[in-house]
Amino acid sequence: MPSDPPGFELPLRLLIGFRMLIDDLHAELARRGHPGMRPMHGFVMQAIGVEGTTAVELGRRLGITKQAAGKTVATLERLGYVERACDPGDARRKIVRLTPHGLESLALSARIFDDLRERWARTLGRERMGAFEADLRALTAGQVFRLDVPGWFGD
């Protein structure tokens, strides 16, 4: 019987699986009319949310500087995924909001992720896929959706 793999292989395999899903997602998004979308954009649009937010709050949610958040917002604005508007409660503040194009891209991403999950389930088998996901949920309890991943990869 072979020995257990080295401990460092586990995070690498998890990262490779994550990268495969993200790369496949973005290839499909490009085919379906969103060629400018990048992995960081999904984190940013999720952090903006349906209510919108300010660049300062966006930076805090993502664990990045206000300037980095502003640069990404400018890119998303140029691509038509977000817009800036005056805050109705304070005309000095700008609120970043998702456009209909941005909302559509998030909905499309969700459908594509469902398709990718289905592909993995066909490869592993439904029972094994369910067990795999249950095991990951048990190991990552309380960590459902961390938006600060971009900041975590920084300095």
Rank of each mutant, 00 (worst) to 15 (best):
F145M: 07
R61I: 02
R32L: 13
M20H: 11
L106E: 13
Y81D: 02
H26E: 00
M1D: 13
L116Q: 03
M20S: 09
P39V: 02
R84L: 15
T99H: 00
E133V: 14
P5T: 08
M1C: 11
R92H: 14
A47T: 02
M45N: 00
P35K: 04
I95T: 04
K66L: 06
V56F: 15
D24V: 01
R38S: 09
H34T: 00
D135F: 14
R60W: 06
I64L: 10
I112F: 07
R119Q: 10
R119E: 09
P100T: 00
K71G: 04
K66P: 02
V44S: 03
R31Y: 04
V73L: 02
P11R: 13
P88L: 10
E104P: 01
V50H: 15
T123K: 14
L116R: 01
A131C: 11
P39F: 01
E9R: 15
R97W: 00
G102N: 08
V144N: 10
Q67C: 13
I22L: 14
V144L: 14
G49I: 14
G89R: 14
A68T: 08
L76S: 04
P100D: 02
V96C: 12
A30G: 01
G33V: 03
C86M: 09
H26Y: 00
G33Y: 01
T99C: 00
R38N: 07
I64T: 15
R117D: 07
L108V: 02
D87V: 05
P11A: 10
I48A: 11
L14E: 08
V44K: 02
Q143K: 15
D24S: 05
E77A: 11
V56P: 08
I22C: 12
F153E: 08
G33W: 05
G36L: 11
G36I: 06
L147R: 08
L124S: 11
L15S: 05
H41S: 09
P150H: 11
G59S: 05
P6N: 03
R111H: 08
